[in-house]
Amino acid sequence: MTQHVTDKPQVASGPAPAGAAIQSNRAIAVSASRFGLPVLLIILIVIFSVLAPQTFATVTNLRTVLSTQSVLAVLALAAMMTLVIGEFDLSLGAQMGLSALLFPGLAANGTLPLPVALICAILATTLVGLINGILVAKLKINSFIATIGMAALLSAAVLAYSGGNTIYAGVPPSLLSIAAFAPLGIPGPIIYVAVIALVVWLLLQRTPFGRWMAAVGGSRDAAKLSGINTDRVTVVTFTLAGVLCGISGVLLASQLGSGNPAVGPGQLLPAFAAAFLGATSFRVGQFNVWGTIFAVLTIATGVAGLNLLGLPSWVEPAFNGLALIVAVTATRYLRGKPL
């Protein structure tokens, strides 16, 4: 008898026919899902245009939706980047809040020139991202816990800095010009988001670092045993997420024209909803840039349309919460494994 038997037959045999059936069902679902979000977006636009032609189907409304959602889009990209490496950054909203407060705060009464204040605000969240990364990668603290703690600390910092009051006194009006900038009638925020999305896409899809991020998220052990410095990838990713949070905060402040200590944390859930919903489209089952952007647009269109139809204000959080749960469930199924 030459046949050799391994010590682990259950591994050798694997999930045979039942697994194959699930696989093929999933394959169908995956291909059906690929352009689900763009199709859903078009359907929503058509429905609301028919129901509210005077208010919804206008260029003004389009501009408003796109501009206001630019803040969320950048934040969602930050959430997506940390999700790609298999980590959660729950301090994203608080980081954005910090930047949105620091920028006008530092620029108020000419304390710092506007560009310097802008850079300082982004540097602050970059530093926060770096600390998050070190806590997770080097001190081996679960990212969920580390960043929830960081979020609380940042909220405290925001309260301490502002005293709980909105900062508007002495804020230079030029602050608004960042968001108001509109070459050829295209709102600046749309251009900023497009550029940022393209840069993030290039990083993820066209650089070795992007591959390493995906590998760390897919299997930290396999990544490490391929010679990838997984700790460095983690730290850099959290830091880059911090940069994006800073940018989204700056965008928000330039739309508001003031520093509001209450904004930020509320944007965390919509950002995650968009990142998860995005994983159901384009590169199905994987967190991806265009899926995330389309998810932001789809949710925003849905919410804007429902608002214009006169539905009450609780619709928006309900919509976001439902989108998150549905998206996570769908992503789990499409990936074929828990997140």
Partner: peptide, 17 residues
Amino acid sequence: RDGCVMSMTVTENMTLV
């Protein structure tokens, strides 16, 4: 667990190093 990144493609796994 250690050899392949199961969620990645053949290409991505093969050129990971």
